[in-house]
Design a protein around this nucleic acid. Structure first.
Lengths: 232, 232
DNA sequence: ACAAAAGTGTTCCCTCTACACCCATGC
DNA sequence: GCATGGGTGTAGAGGGAACACTTTTGT
């Protein structure tokens, strides 16, 4: 056991990403199936070892580029460090920095043969602690949909309000009212009408107006519910 | 450069904590002065190398025990990973998991000779990226004071509303109204009257009632401002 | 009586929800 | 005309901010 990593304070460092996307009315995560032991056959998150000359965010973006075109990643943010000593059989011991990644619902990335999308609420048997990481990612997304403009990262460039409603409902896990969704996002200045409309379906109905998000970086739109600073 | 840590994906891992406390109407962070190069003389965060048989949270609690009695730490939570390749001169390369730690304002921990408290808004020259970590900690605290019960971690066991007001004002950086603070926290069921009162000051005034927080783990009290699930 | 500090009552405002109603299209 | 889906108007509830007012003490 004279492995270099057995020296105190030294560990292998990996980066992992729970990449989420809404498809077919459900929130899905990208997983690939391990070919080798340990945990052969189980499904795991994309990622890999941290490179010597990159920070963790650059690393996860680089490694995801092998699975998904980086331009398709609308948002990436750190989730947490997972560091239980036995989370991965060693040596070396492996510490992971986990990320949340979001992909708009209108793009269908070409993924490798061993990679598939699974509904977050119906995950297969996952490797190591990857199932817990996906749940953390889901919870973070749900929270931020409410007080930031993060919806832009799940939506296509242009969309109807009902399409956006489907999106939010799938991500949040409960029915969202189209009426109030439009009003809340409009009041916050996040939505912008394109002026164009989408054709109605075969059974008729008024054609839906197309909207887009006004900005594409994450912004906090509802900074504090209470204890606001005094006006003046 | 045949250092073991130069192998791809292997790095030294340290844990650091921005330990915050309100003292004398300002939010302060605990720093110690480096004796050795690099950055000798600069002020840095407590922490150290991750041990082989502990996760990052156990590690930071263990290492803080050398500076502060662990029982005095009312709250500890992960902030983020700091991993710029050159954040600390190497080799070995050092990746840090940063924490936020909170100490109630009524205890005055015995700290080592090289350790002092500094106002967060007036930090001395800090080592490495530790200044940025303290700012992240301050921002996290400010956000969570608004939508969680995290005030309990800054407050003494029992307190008057005006004392609590001072606390929140110092932590948030702006004047908070005692009237509304009491109402908000009471409505959320976070405050509990002890039935006892504090004696008035030398210039008179009505004696203040003493309160305590009803719980001591962090709870989210204002989960989402908008897009709530439908009732029913 | 007066000043000082604590606590309460009241009003206003803003935001989100719910639901009824109107609009534009296909058949 | 009528069904279908899109969009708006409006009333209601809730929570927080602001501020006046009352309560309780010391001098």
């Amino acid at each position: 056991m004279a492995d270099a990593t057995s020296r105190p304070g030294v560990a292998a460092h990996e980066v992992l990403a729970a990449v989420l996307q809404v498809r077919a009315r459900s929130l899905r995560a990208m997983l690939w199936q391990r070919a080798r032991e340990p945990h052969a056959g189980r499904w795991s998150l994309p990622g890999g070892r941290l490179g010597d000359h990159e920070d963790v965010e650059a690393s996860i973006r680089r490694q995801l580029a092998e699975k998904v075109d980086v331009r398709q990643l609308a948002h990436v943010e750190q989730l947490a460090v997972f560091s239980a000593p036995d989370r991965v059989p060693g040596p070396p011991r492996v510490v992971a920095t986990a990320f949340l990644g979001l992909v708009p619902c209108d793009i269908d990335p070409e993924v490798p043969e061993d990679t598939r999308w699974f509904a977050v609420d119906d995950l297969p048997e996952t490797a190591f602690d990857h199932g817990a990481i996906v749940l953390r990612a889901r919870n973070r997304l749900r929270a931020k949909l409410s007080y930031t403009n993060l919806g832009f990262a799940l939506a296509p460039k242009e969309f109807t309000i009902s399409a956006l409603r489907e999106l939010y409902s799938a991500a949040l896990g409960y029915r969202v009212s189209a009426t109030n969704l439009q009003r809340v996002l409009s009041r916050r200045g996040l939505l912008e009408a394109t002026g164009r409309t989408a054709p109605p379906g075969p059974s008729g109905g008024r054609p839906a107006a197309l909207f887009r998000f006004t900005g594409h970086g994450m912004r906090v739109t509802d900074p504090f519910a209470v204890l606001r600073p005094p006006r003046g």
